[in-house]
């Protein structure tokens, strides 16, 4: 194809006009080219006018959100005893592991904060934790890290009553009495069967 131009077609095409880009567009492109040559890593189109503060605001919002989320995560220290781990489990690591494999059930001690754990925390704050307390605290922390999102187990009244009956059968009347007292406090209007009240 040497030249397939048709003179008449070419002339008509030229008559359509010699539009050129507006001067402002030329200036914008040439400025971008200059900026790119001078600062190879600068953005070609710099934010201008009202868009400029959007970038600053967006960046500030992202930073604030990140800080808030981090702070919130640090503040959320799950109570290891609220996850259904009993006082016995805390006292005996092996027992605690056994209880973990069983369905989660709140203990009577779940509402009353274990003395040992409280002492451990107190002594931890004072910087003089006993080895045993420190070990318990470490284990509790490890459990809370392993199950950070586990919801506290809520024991049904029926299950609680069954446990009282079991305690009575085992002759643990004092413990059964404590649990019953707690039951009455927690479920004041609940009708309690006779075999729960007496052995």
């Amino acid at each position: 194809m040497a030249d397939e131009r048709d003179p008449k077609v070419s002339r008509r095409y030229r008559e359509l006009g010699n539009e050129e880009p507006p001067p402002g567009l030329d200036e914008s492109i040439v400025s971008a080219a200059r900026r790119a040559a001078e600062h190879p890593h600068a953005p070609l189109v710099t934010p201008s006018g009202r868009h400029r503060w959007y970038f600053s605001l967006g960046a500030a919002a992202v930073i604030v959100l990140a800080v808030a989320v981090t702070y919130q995560m640090q503040q959320e220290q799950p109570d290891p005893f609220a996850t259904g781990v009993s006082r016995e489990a805390v006292k005996s690591p092996a027992n605690g592991r056994a209880r973990e494999s069983a369905p989660p059930a709140a203990d009577s001690s779940a509402t009353a904060r274990p003395e040992a754990a409280t002492q451990a925390e107190t002594s931890g704050r004072q910087g003089a934790a006993a080895p045993e307390a420190r070990m318990r605290r470490d284990e509790a922390a490890a459990r809370s890290l392993a199950k950070p999102m586990q919801a506290p187990a809520v024991e049904t009244p029926q299950r609680m009553l069954e446990r009282i009956v079991e305690l009575r059968k085992q002759g643990k009347h004092e413990e059964a009495g404590q649990l019953l007292a707690e039951f009455k406090q927690r479920y004041p209007g609940y009708r309690i069967p006779e075999n729960v009240v007496r052995p």
């Binding site: 010699n18 050129e20 880009p21 030329d26 080219a33 200059r34």
Partner: peptide
């Protein structure tokens, strides 16, 4: 060379 671009641009813009 930013000047080279300007020459190039002037040639092809229209």
């Amino acid at each position: 060379d930013a000047g080279a671009f300007e020459t190039l641009y002037a040639r092809h813009r229209a």
